[in-house]
Design a protein around this nucleic acid. Structure first.
Length: 254
DNA sequence: ATGCCTCAGCTCCTGAGA
């Protein structure tokens, strides 16, 4: 079984790339973030013609998430029932006995701003909800654009970005608290080359110079850990014309 | 450098992203 996550930065712009990618990477579930379109504009038909079912939670202009799957998903939930949120950021569902959560974590803009406070509250509420979910769904995958680096190994310029957004102690504390619920960073279950990132700034030739961040993650619960066979970041779509600034992350389970 | 790209939208500038 394969699961993947990809922040596409506008599904309207990236739909052909997503369909191309699925044709060569026929994963069981693909979680998308930053659709930037409302549900009435979601391209269900295009995915159906490619053999995929769709569950979407869209929003005009910003945010928006979806689960694209080969099999029909059950138990679809939108956002965190424990957190009143104006923004479409989470969609979760069951694939067999595995609870799959796709999430677009808040960016947070900068420490000290209202958006940063919202990010911390959102993270705290996510942790409470995931903790409860694990009781009923021990096999759980939490994947998406976390907008948080685990540590300096995830940052191209750790000195320059110290205490900056995605790298603050407060954000990293929340990420480690998620891990402490009994989750594992799939990518780090395997040896990784230094400077492995999932996002590169559009500006200043960020990708060509590998000036990036690892902020897209796939966390798996204790009950799934021993089934993880591989986890990798697919940098190929970042080389497309008009790419997303994020690359997909792929998880392979037995 | 309160910038550099890219995207959406009350679109020829602005807000937001990361």
């Amino acid at each position: 079984m394969q699961l993947a996550t990809w922040n596409v930065n506008s599904l309207a712009v990236r739909l052909p790339q997503v369909l191309d990618w699925l044709a060569t990477h026929p994963v069981d579930v693909l979680a998308l973030q930053e659709l930037k379109l409302s549900d009435d504009k979601f391209p269900h038909q295009a995915f159906a013609e490619a053999g995929y079912q769709t569950q979407c939670f869209g929003q005009k202009t910003y945010n928006g998430v979806a689960l694209i799957s080969r099999q029909e998903l059950s138990g679809v939930v939108r956002n965190n029932p424990l957190f009143a949120d104006d923004m479409a950021r989470i969609i979760s569902a069951n694939l067999g006995d595995v609870r799959v959560i796709g999430a677009y974590f808040p960016n947070g803009q900068a420490p000290g701003t209202d958006k940063f406070e919202y990010k911390l509250e959102w993270l705290k509420a996510l942790r409470a909800w995931v903790k409860a979910e694990l009781l009923t769904h021990p096999k759980l995958v939490l994947m998406g654009d976390y907008n948080i680096t685990f540590d300096d190994a995830d940052v191209w310029d750790p000195e320059g970005m110290r205490d900056q957004i995605h790298c603050t102690d407060e954000e990293r504390y929340e990420l480690s608290a998620l891990i402490a619920l009994g989750l594992h960073d799939s990518l780090r279950l395997f040896p990784q080359a230094p400077k492995t990132y999932s996002w590169w700034d559009y500006r200043d030739m960020g990708f060509r110079r590998n000036r990036g961040l690892r902020i897209d993650h796939i966390l798996v619960s204790d009950a799934l850990k021993n089934t993880v066979r591989a986890c990798e970041i697919d940098k190929a779509p970042r080389k497309n014309e008009r790419p997303s600034d994020h690359a997909p992350v792929i998880l392979t389970l037995t």
